[in-house]
Design a protein around this nucleic acid. Sequence first.
RNA 1: GCGGGUGUAGCUCAAUUGGUAGAGCGCGACCUUGCCAAGGUCGAGGUUGUGGGUUCGAGACCCAUCACUCGCUCCA
Length: 588
Amino acid sequence: MPTTNSLDVISSLCKRRGFIFHSSEIYGGINGFWDYGPLGCEMKRNIKEDWWKTTVRNREDVAGLDATIIMHPAIWKASGHLDTFSDPMSTCKSCKKLMRADQVWDILADGEIGQGLAALIVGGVDAGKVAGWCKGKAKGLAPNLAAVRDADALTAAFEKIKADPAAYADAQALYVLLANAKGSQPAVTPCPYCGGELTEPRPFNLMFKTVVGPVDDPANVAYLRPETAQAIFAQFQNVQVTSRQQVPFGIAQMGKSFRNEVTPRNYTFRSREFEQMELEFFIRPDEAVELICGTVTTMADSPDLSVPQASWGWEVWHKYWVEQRKAWIQACGLPKDSFVEYWQKPEELAHYARACVDIEYSFPFGVQELEGIAARSDFDLTQHQKHSGKSMEVFDEPLKLAAAKLDEAAKAAFTAKVSAEWATRGKDAEAARAFVAKLFEGKYVPHVIEPSAGVDRMMLALLCNAYEEQKLTDEKGKEDVRVVMHFSPRIAPVKVAVFPLVKNKPEVYNKAREIFGHLRRRCAAFWDEGGAIGRRYRRQDEIGTPWCVTIDFQTLDDGTVTLRDRDTMQQERLTLDQLKAKLEEALL
RNA sequence: GCGGGUGUAGCUCAAUUGGUAGAGCGCGACCUUGCCAAGGUCGAGGUUGUGGGUUCGAGACCCAUCACUCGCUCCA
């Protein structure tokens, strides 16, 4: 049903009808920041409330948290954001490409230039072969390399290689020489794409910095959080104890996050200030599950994913949450075939992640991530345990009881088995033994499954999906275009609009006001008395109001009203009680 | 941050070679109106993104700046 459309059409409707405005527009706007207008903030609120209801209130095993945006800077040291979010970047002065300074040599090795160089150094560097490459193939591959561009430079390089071939026996050293043969000072780092000169690496901090306290001193620097998740880990023990939850259980949080993106792009899709809905769902390590249940259910067992089981291993929990998240996305109104599940390949995963699924929606600008569901092992809690010195372990009574039933031989066998498994993942036996010893005491650092969604992205996807331009032809054959936003009723910013059929008849008008008064107490209702009835319907179509109620002369006689459906444009007559019941059911 | 394109009313767009800014839609008021963008009358809205400069005169030309957009980067 959704019409193929460009982002321009969506964004102009959003502005015209008050969904989304450019932040600080009267001062020329500010890149990467967006405001939600009257309808937009209602809709965004609906998305968040629906997520909260589904993730927290309707479950017994998830507790909520609302932490601050500014936290102790040590949190970002522990999480790794301080290091990974401040990559020094270099730009090529010739081809203008931007790259992480620490990846220059990897890019070179992976590219055609690197392969060309690698071929040259097989069996020892030969100055003649190098010169031949510079005059031939390299003209296409690395046109901006000094030795390719400049004959004198090539000659200088030729002499240096002849003098000491062993010094240039690896691709990187050789490439640097070809860029610096004439001894430029300081030495030039050549671009791995074209051989041109790279700028000095400049820090690119993706976290927003601020200063806590009145003194503007480097010691007081703090950061606006780049994700909400870390607060959950930092408050893990407090929440666990006060909520009286036992693993497996989750902690959920919604809130603003900030990233100083290099290039905000695609309307609200990549913003510098955005809102997240994150759940950290803590589970037992598989080894603990095995001790308690005697077995670990994996996806190979084709488990029923509808009700969580104690025997589930991380793999099943991960898949369970993928399914839960997809179900929610569908319930919000995105059709099943409009998004895909993308399983990150092993080489794409962060080093601590065991699996990560991206739910990708096909936006007008391409298939892009809506949310991610990551299996992050015990990485986060362990990091905070290390950096804070505070224990992140939980005590698991069933685990201790199960371990107590094992005799020494069984314990030794279990320890040996775990050590062997850990060894295949490159972990040392010492760590495995310490981990198992803790397990026998009923203690471990929980592992975590992290479904992390972007509110703004979900909203953008819903806007894109809902938009339709319908060609209508009336009985007289007159053509007309109707713009409809097909929001699901639970997400729609306005649920019901109320119209008096005519406004110059006080009886009808007053009756309509009375009915409007009833409805607005139950759901987001909108009053419109301006213009012809058809125009009023169309105005509501454009903002996605599912139902319009019209009060006419018959209402005065029998108390019934007409309920007009947005998608079918059909009307039915209902009593006020029937109407209330219908709305209640649809919005539950 | 770098390079290409763009910026006129709430929206979509006009405005000869530089000559003093306009249309449609929308919006507001009133009248009319018995169900799908109806009709009538009246009305509000722009220092042409912003700031400089060239010129007798700039929406148009030059410079700067801000933003949008496409690439490099990124992933809620």
